[in-house]
């Protein structure tokens, strides 16, 4: 009796402390949103208070200067196309590498695993040379090719582990029925891989959407800017103009926050899956 009561009290205290920590975590978002609708003068005199009047005009101006629709569309296209191709190409390779356990495929797998340790910054300089030599510079398809290259080691690694857990009998039955290797893969194996495909898709989507360094090296034209690049360019021009900068930042973070809130279950599962296999 006493123990359960004690437990309940300590649980309530834990809950209160955790809620306070949560408020601490949310304070930066409060500052961001509240100040994004303040006039410049209001913002300078007191950043902590609620706005005296709401200035939606800040958003209209920032929207125009950053050319937000174009940046959003570029980020969106790059993330989706890279990911669809990445998931498909990696799934095919992973499937074959598990089912045909040749020396070549074994060595290739070891190389993929080793490549996961290579930091992006340690190959970015010659990468610029390579991409400009083969004509991938300053183009969205070029950037997508780069994402395929960088994404393949981890994606293959995660899918490789998953294919191993798919029972061979299903495929054998299909082969006996006369389905060829491509039919077996696309009609039987690929649908079975769906949980891990979702995981890989989500992990890569968060990475590619937020990536700054690679697109900043590959894309130069203003009309190709992604959200992070557009934000960076904007800050170079409008330093300390917080009444424009904050709305621009809100627009920059809103799509990914909405995506997170909608897909939360899959994102959390994806991270757990990715970590267990990694």
């Amino acid at each position: 009796m006493d123990i359960t009561k004690n437990n309940r009290i300590s649980l309530a205290i834990t809950e209160i402390i955790m809620l306070l920590v949560a408020i601490l975590f949310l304070i930066p978002f409060y500052f961001l949103f509240v100040n994004s609708v303040k006039s410049f003068g209001d913002l300078l005199t007191n950043a902590a208070s609620l706005p005296k009047s709401i200035e939606w005009g800040n958003y209209a101006r920032a929207f125009e200067i950053t050319n937000f629709p174009s940046a959003f569309l570029n980020s969106f296209v790059i993330t989706i196309v890279s990911n669809v191709l990445l998931v498909l190409v990696s799934a095919m390779a992973a499937y074959r590498m598990v089912r045909q356990n040749t020396a070549f495929n074994r060595i290739l797998f070891v190389i993929f695993v080793a490549a996961m340790v290579v930091p992006f910054q340690s190959i970015m300089i010659p990468l610029v040379k390579v991409t400009s030599t083969v004509g991938l510079m300053n183009s969205i398809p070029g950037l997508i090719v780069c994402y395929l290259g960088f994404g393949i080691p981890m994606s293959v690694f995660l899918l490789h582990g998953f294919v191993k857990s798919i029972p061979l009998e299903i495929e054998e039955a299909a082969t006996v029925d006369g389905t060829n290797a491509y039919g077996v893969f696309f009609r039987i194996v690929l649908p079975l891989m769906k949980p891990m495909l979702v995981t890989v898709f989500i992990l890569n989507a968060l990475w590619i959407w937020n990536d700054y360094l690679l697109p900043s090296l590959i894309l130069q034209s203003p009309e190709l800017r992604t959200i992070p690049i557009a934000t960076f360019a904007f800050f170079g021009q409008y330093t300390k103009q917080w009444d424009l900068a904050l709305p621009a930042l809100v627009m920059g973070v809103l799509p990914i926050i909405v995506f997170f809130l909608m897909m939360q279950k899959y994102i959390i599962e994806g991270i757990t899956q990715g970590a267990v296999k990694g």
Partner: peptide
């Protein structure tokens, strides 16, 4: 068909620059 595409992108973007 299955491994070729992954190998090509990987080689071009990671191995060659490295």
């Amino acid at each position: 068909v299955f491994v070729g595409p992954a190998l090509i992108f990987f080689a071009l973007i990671i191995v060659v620059p490295f």
